[in-house]
Structure formats: structure tokens, C-alpha cells
């Protein structure tokens, strides 16, 4: 904990996020915060931007980091720093979407399968979409699970971030992949 003050010089530029966080928490030096933002700021922003829009992603990103500044002990080290950061980001985003009455993802899991039908309805021209546009065709929760997995989170970590059982996450991932595979198949056919 406070020992980080004494050992800060031991850590080079390859410090892990947890080490950087401990150093920032104990010293309050903005230099460590800058390194943390460099390490995970873009990843969080990308996740939030895909789940909302750029303006909201900027806003939520800022909120997350400000939470870290104002309540440095809110990260207790029970998970990795990145998992904690994405959990905070996701919660802030959903709160904000609810506040703005843009939250539409509270759908039962049984309805998730229906999204695969969407791909079949797309015509040939729409299959030539950019990846980000393809992602936007996915339901919020499927897109969320897929992005978190592509971001490198394990099934358990995704489960922790979203507070959903691992089985549910598996289903979302499967449907998301099926959908994208159908789109990809169409793209390949047209290539």
C-alpha cells in the first residue's frame, strides 16, 4: 500500500495498471494517472463509443477517471484494474442511458436469438458494412459481451463486469458470432 511510495523507483515504464494505480493512489501524482490513461483510456473509450456515441463515450470516460481521482479507494483490488475500470464504465453508461431514456437492452435472453434473423433480412448491399457498422446491428448486450471478449477479458471477467451468469454470457457470444458469421459469409460470397 503505502510502501509503493518507497518502491516507486523500482518500477519502470512497464508497470502494470495495478502498480500504477497504487502509485497514483498513494502519491497523488498526476504522472501515474497519465500513464494509466495511456494504458487503458483508449480501450475504455472504444468500448463506450461502440455502445453509445462519441460524445457520450467522452463524457462517461471522463466520469470514470474522475471517480478514480476523487475516490481513489473505490478500487479495492478484488479484480484487475481493467476489469474494475470497465465495470465502472459500463455502470455509468447504463445509468446515463437510462437517465436519457435510451436504454433498451433489458430484453429477455430468449429474445436474443431473434437477432440472428436480422442478418438474413439484410440485402447484399448492406452486407458490405464496416466492422463497426456490423457491430451496431447487434443487440446491446450481445455487442457488449463480444467486445469485452475481443478486448481480452475472460468469460469470468465478462461475467463480473456485466453481473450476469457465465452461461448467459456464453449465449450472447454465440448469437453475436452467428450473426457476424452470417454477415461475413455474405461478404465472402460477394467478394
Amino acid at each position: 500500500m503505502a510502501l509503493s511510495f518507497f518502491v516507486s523507483s523500482w518500477f519502470g515504464s512497464d508497470s502494470s495498471a495495478e502498480q500504477l494505480f497504487a502509485l497514483y493512489r498513494d502519491t497523488g501524482s498526476p504522472a501515474y494517472l497519465e500513464k494509466l490513461i495511456a494504458l487503458h483510456g483508449n480501450e475504455l473509450y472504444h468500448f463506450l463509443a461502440q455502445q453509445s456515441d462519441k460524445a457520450l463515450a467522452e463524457d462517461i470516460s471522463q466520469q470514470c477517471w474522475l471517480k478514480l481521482i476523487e475516490q481513489p479507494y473505490s478500487f479495492a483490488g478484488k479484480s484487475s484494474f481493467k476489469t474494475w475500470l470497465f465495470s465502472v464504465g459500463r455502470n455509468c453508461l447504463i445509468d446515463e442511458l437510462r437517465r436519457r431514456q435510451r436504454w433498451q437492452a433489458d430484453m429477455p435472453e430468449t429474445e436474443l436469438a431473434a437477432s440472428t434473423c436480422l442478418a438474413q433480412q439484410l440485402d447484399t448491399n448492406r452486407r458490405q458494412l464496416l466492422f463497426s457498422e456490423q457491430l451496431q446491428l447487434l443487440p446491446f448486450l450481445q455487442r457488449e459481451a463480444l467486445m469485452l471478449q475481443l478486448e481480452g477479458f475472460s468469460l469470468q471477467q465478462i461475467s463480473d463486469i456485466t453481473r450476469q451468469p457465465a452461461e448467459t454470457i456464453k449465449s450472447r457470444l454465440r448469437y453475436a458470432r452467428q450473426f457476424l458469421q452470417q454477415l461475413a459469409g455474405g461478404s465472402d460470397d460477394n467478394a
Binding site: P30, L33, E34, I37, G41, N42, E43, L44, Y45, H46, A49, Q50, K54, E58, S61, Q62, W65, L66, I69, L130, F131, S132, L135
Partner: peptide, 18 residues
Amino acid sequence: DKACHVLPQRVSSEIVRR
């Protein structure tokens, strides 16, 4: 896609300023 969506510099600067 991630490389195309990076946190704007002004946002990170603002966070550090705060």
C-alpha cells in the same frame, strides 16, 4: 476499429488537469 476510436487528447488532458 479500436485504433480508429481513440480517446481525444483534449479529454485526457482535461482529466489530468482535474
